[in-house]
Nucleic acid binder design. Structure first.
Lengths: 138, 138
DNA sequence: ATAATATCCTACCAATTTGGTAGGGAAATT
DNA sequence: AATTTCCCTACCAAATTGGTAGGATATTAT
């Protein structure tokens, strides 16, 4: 399951996506409109900034805004940044790979099935973007 | 990601699947062969028994064994018992549904995408069985 | 009967993760 | 210089995870 933090991230990002091109949006604005604890939201937005999904501006007239178009930010990317691996096992993760103990990967039946599952999931999450989120809501 | 407990469950179950029809298998045997902490494994097997995937026998000659054929135990079932929901959000879970706060489900874009993801995942995990795990390993 | 074998049950525990708060520092604007 | 707003470090409580301890209960063998 996705963490609460990840759900907050999606809510915040879709708000920024709705306001894409309208200049910086205040953290406090997002916090109020999307009902996300302000200080917790700060952390989230900062992490998203560090991976270059967001840009920020300080001082009056400042705030956060999407660095690229909502059509270019897919859900897999967001989940990986805030939530971690998408695969169900570390040994089949593309971005967070870890070898599993006592397991010959070549002959592991669970691994094979989990690889198929990962691919099916990624096929969707890498194609769907913030744009799809806001336009799927009508 | 699946918990370590769930991975233990799969390892134990595939061992029981390999020995299907050979009578009860000792917890201690599974524990040694599959390198799973004995007392922790006890819990796991017990949970699997409570949902009727396993049967047990006490006393000498006792142990655990699959209640039904390995072909009839799919991975989705196992994950749900030991790990919990398969969906990425509670509000799209079939077996662990919970309404999400401040969200109109009819118009929630995230929800729609997560529903599609859930279906794609289930399509695989409900079809693949313990039998597939042991025969995918050759 | 009773001893031995093996599962079952309740309770506990330490480490990690999650969700969140506090408070000040740094940069930009007025 | 004051104000505004993001940035950074540190801390904290609650929940979850991974595991242990110890005995109760059921079955079988002697």
């Amino acid at each position: 399951m996705l963490s609460k933090k990840t759900r907050y991230a999606f809510r915040a990002l879709s708000y920024l996506a709705e306001n894409y091109g309208k200049g910086p949006i205040l953290i406090s604005d997002i916090s109020v409109k999307k009902k996300i604890p302000l200080k917790f939201l700060e952390n989230i937005l900062n992490e998203l900034k560090k991976v270059d999904l967001l840009e920020s501006k300080k001082g009056k007239g400042g705030g956060y805004y999407l660095k690229v178009s909502p059509k270019k930010i897919n859900l897999a990317t967001v989940i990986r940044v805030i939530n971690g691996p998408i695969a169900l096992l570390p040994c089949v993760s593309l971005n967070f790979y870890e070898r599993c103990e006592d397991c010959d990967e070549k002959h592991c039946g669970i691994r094979k099935i989990m690889t198929i599952t990962r691919d099916a999931t990624l096929k969707i999450l890498e194609k769907k973007t913030l744009h799809d989120i806001i336009f799927a809501s009508f």
